[in-house]
Nucleic acid binder design. Structure first.
Lengths: 143, 143
DNA sequence: TATAACATTAACGTTAACGTTAAATTTTGT
DNA sequence: ACAAAATTTAACGTTAACGTTAATGTTATA
């Protein structure tokens, strides 16, 4: 499988090298493999993970802390997927799953709230746009 | 018309007094009236404006700079609404309006992009939720 | 009317999210 | 094989968005 060095990743994602290392430092992305002497070697998967982080930060406006919370949640779910049936203490596991589910529900509801607010703002902007278009068209007619 | 003091506004909006003064300082909100001796006196309208800023910041994740840009745009449009017909230089005005329109269109498209990305994330989370529910239900059945 | 409770400005402090620089290695191109 | 280019860690610098404190002045109320 092909590996990329940090400068390639930076160019691909638009982040700086510093930022990529920083995201690794605070645990937002998995540490990539290293060469024998310590140079970071990224897989496509590493890069995809980074891109998701960018979307969540830029597009959704999450803070890196919120993002970390989020990703940890996802990781927890995915890592528990197979372990569950063999769990030592079923009741504890069940409780944990229910906590996660409740947490997820909250995040989903929050996203829906945000989408609603965004739509409202978008509508407001479209009204402004309409107003301007009307004025411009009146001008056309009047010459 | 009733006026509120900054502490009331803080309680109403959930912001701190410092933050409210700061938003005024950087031009995010209109400076409210002052009493004879300098105490800030806020109208309902002032408070509404603040609440909109909060939505845009918290819910939409805009930086205060982006917000400022945004609000300035809106202000520009609204203040030009009546002035336009009597404008001295019609061509300049027309050009300006077209610039604003183009700017608005960009913001609207950006909002739509964000909404799309949000929906994707929401769907992803709902799949995770579904997975958890399935596991929990299997547990129920197995006792 | 006095005094407690609140407001104002000014200035320094803090935290997140990187930027920048430096000194030492590593990797790459010829 | 060796210079040039890229990478690593470490540490200090910067900016936005406030928090905190202090000194002083204003408002409310008993």
């Amino acid at each position: 499988m092909k590996r990329f060095k940090i400068d390639d990743v930076a160019k691909e994602t638009g982040l700086t090298k510093r930022t990529i290392r920083y995201y690794e430092e605070i645990g937002l992305i998995k540490p990539p493999e290293r060469s024998e002497k310590g140079t970071r070697l990224y897989t496509e998967e590493n890069i995809e993970q980074l891109k998701k982080v960018i979307v969540a930060r830029e597009v959704l406006g999450f803070s890196l802390q919120e993002l970390h919370h989020f990703l940890t949640l996802k990781e927890t779910i995915e890592s528990h997927r197979f372990e569950y049936r063999n769990a030592v203490n079923q009741d504890d596991k069940k409780q944990e799953l229910q906590n996660i589910a409740s947490n997820l529900r909250q995040q989903i509801d929050m996203l829906e709230q945000k989408r609603k607010k965004m739509l409202e703002l978008k509508n407001e902007l479209e009204q402004l746009e309409q107003r301007i278009q009307t004025i411009l068209q009146e001008e056309e007619r009047r010459g």
